[in-house]
Simulated assay, not measured.
Amino acid sequence: MPLSELVRYFNAADSAGQSTLYPEGKRVAAWHDGLHLASRFQPIVDLAQERIVGHQATLAVRSEDGTPLSPETAYERCSSPESIVHFDRLCRTLHALNFLAQQRYAGGYLQLAIHPRHLLAVQSQHGLVYEAILKRCGLAPEDIVLDIDAVGIGTDQRLDTALANYRRRGYRLALRQTALATDLLQRLQPAIVRLNEIGPPDTVDRPEPLYFELSGIDNTDTLVAARAAGIQLGQGRLFGEPAADCRPTHNERRVAYNSQIPTGDPT
């Protein structure tokens, strides 16, 4: 389905009329509660091969007068469980549409945050509605890594239920946690653990398969140190700043730029 038709479809599906998706150049933006919302993408790199394997989506927020705001400020406006579910799903729909718009040259997976309040607000069938949204965009749960901040949720049983539902539907999970604990990893079963600094991968009894991803790789010294620590994935200014456009991973004939062997079927 063309991007313009998808925008019309999702706007019509929002029966409450709380938000509006609209074309903005070659991308899609949204208005919600007086805020302008847009997508930014930062490449995620396989550190051993220096190959882009996915993109992290983040939310860019501006007020009506153009003042930049933090994503968390936008989330704080959501005062009820229903409003947080609507807004969080809107943001992930926006990211999926903008990722879809670049599929001719941007491959790999889409990694995007799901807000902890959303996890606790939905009672059952986590990921079902978003799976339907993804299918409209020609994507599937297997194309998505859900980035989850477990700090503050801790031992709440609803977190276990939510993550089990997402895994059952085929989503992969990336866990952000300040204190890496083997029991936590075994309980929540993430595919990826996200680190803000080079930490203890070699000292954690990690379930297999499990990948560690480091943020803030801004120079070659950090890259070398991350490799030495056994960290497999990374993102940072060394590989590219967050931008409206994904970093290309292949040309329009589906040949990977960083591969000496043509891959995929020419289109």
Rank of each mutant, 00 (worst) to 15 (best):
G66W: 01
G54N: 03
L90W: 03
T73I: 10
P68Y: 00
A106K: 07
H86Q: 14
E82H: 12
I84D: 03
A101R: 06
T58K: 00
L100T: 13
R92P: 07
G66D: 08
A57D: 00
L97R: 03
G54T: 08
Q56L: 01
D65Y: 00
Y109V: 15
L100K: 12
Y75S: 11
G107S: 11
L69N: 03
E76S: 15
V61M: 07
T93C: 04
P81R: 05
R77H: 14
Q103A: 15
C78I: 10
L69R: 05
Y75L: 15
A96L: 06
S80A: 11
T58E: 03
E82F: 13
R62P: 03
L59F: 07
Y105V: 15
L59V: 11
L94F: 10
L69H: 10
L90H: 04
Q103V: 15
R92H: 02
N98K: 13
L100Q: 14
Q111V: 10
P81N: 09
R92L: 11
T93K: 01
D88Q: 10
T73R: 12
G54S: 09
S83H: 05
E82W: 08
L112T: 15
E76V: 15
T67I: 06
Y109P: 02
Q56K: 09
L97A: 13
H86L: 14
V85R: 01
